[in-house]
Simulated assay, not measured.
Amino acid sequence: MRTTMLGLLTLTGCTRWDEPPPLPPAGAYKHDAAAENSQAQPIPRDGIAAALTRPLRKAGWFCAQARANADGRALWCRIAHHGAADTVQPQVAQFLLDRDDRLAWAWFPPTEADPEDHKVAAAAAPALTAIWPDAGAQLRTEINDFDDDHRTNTAGDDDEMPRTGWRDTHAEYRYDWLNGLVVTAQDTPVRRWPFGSDHYATSMSSAVDDLRAGGYDCSYPPQQNCNRSQSNGYFRVTLRGDQIVSAQFGIGSRIESGRQQHPLGQEFPHGLTFLTETVRRPVTERIEQSRRTGTSFAGIVAGTLVTIDARSSTLDRGDLVAYLDIQIGAPLAATLPV
């Protein structure tokens, strides 16, 4: 039943499978606040959220509810794949549930890995099978066949990105190597998608001067990526207007004789002021713990999503050198970067 479209061919209805899926769907975030709640929550023990994410969590993924509002709730899952030369390749999955706990939308973005690894299908098939038992087998076939067929033809015969799409009784599925797999459930629309982040994050305009004081080269607005060349550091954010939604930054650590030789204050002289006062201290303490030990972390700290990918080396006398890639919060569903 595989249907790969490179031209103007369409299936039934008005769906054009040769077009990329809308990310995010039109109007998803064009609404006033609707009881927005940006305090991260663990996945409940029962219900659709638990069923969807259970196969991923058993496989080592971290999953949580990132935010919610009056119409639905957004789930965010992540795993760090470790590659050659101590590299980390994160993989993410996003789910949107409606107010009645039904899956409305899901996204399995591609990874930097070779498509032959079939990582998108490996994540999506067991998750969706948990709620739609007949969906997983076809999903694996569609994606794996597409990956095999287009292994050496990433641009398509007419320089367009090759794409495939199909539909079953549960949802519409679109897949390509640029966007990964986007799943839109049948008859389960969420009109107002959750967008809150004020529990844990401040605004970029209020944080940029402190970043500059720490040696970051920031030209905001409009720049959302800042670099600190003297320490190979970076700081980048996703925004909704001026409000920070998620922040990623890289920072080193060097422990000698039990003492930190690269204090956090060298790069953030006024502390992590892009975080609210409510969460700043516990999140900072969690980061400092990983900097002392050179260990990774993924979890919820003071209602805030925190992931830390640490690469470390132990030196003589127990001294430690490490570099940590840190993410605070999750981007809005269906937005880049993931």
Rank of each mutant, 00 (worst) to 15 (best):
R281V: 14
I328K: 07
E285F: 09
D316Y: 14
R281F: 13
A330Y: 03
A322T: 09
D309V: 01
D309P: 04
I300A: 08
D316V: 14
A330E: 10
L324I: 07
L315D: 09
T284C: 06
I287Y: 00
I300R: 02
S290Y: 04
A298I: 05
I328T: 06
R291H: 00
I300K: 07
I287R: 09
T295H: 13
I326F: 03
D316R: 13
E288L: 13
R286M: 07
Q327A: 04
D309L: 08
I326A: 03
A310T: 07
G318L: 09
E285A: 05
P282M: 06
V321Y: 13
Y323A: 10
F297M: 05
R311V: 15
T295G: 12
A322K: 11
Y323N: 13
A298G: 04
F297S: 11
P331F: 00
D309S: 07
T295C: 08
L305G: 01
T304H: 11
R291V: 10
R317N: 15
Q289S: 15
P282L: 08
V321H: 13
I328N: 11
T295N: 12
A302L: 06
E288N: 11
G318M: 02
I287M: 09
S313Y: 15
S296K: 10
A330H: 10
E288W: 05
E288V: 07
S290F: 09
R286E: 07
V301D: 11
V321K: 14
E285D: 13
T314D: 12
V321F: 13
T293C: 13
Y323M: 11
F297E: 02
Q327K: 13
S296P: 02
L315R: 11
P282Q: 00
A330L: 11
F297N: 02
L305S: 02
S290Q: 05
S313E: 14
A322G: 03
L324V: 02
A302S: 12
P331Q: 01
T304N: 05
A310M: 01
S290D: 09
I287Q: 10
R291Q: 10
A322L: 00
Q327C: 08
V321D: 14
A302D: 09
T307E: 13
S312M: 09
I287C: 06
E285G: 00
R281P: 12
Q289V: 14
P331I: 01
I287A: 02
I326D: 11
I328M: 01
G318I: 10
S312E: 00
T293L: 13
R317P: 03
T295F: 07
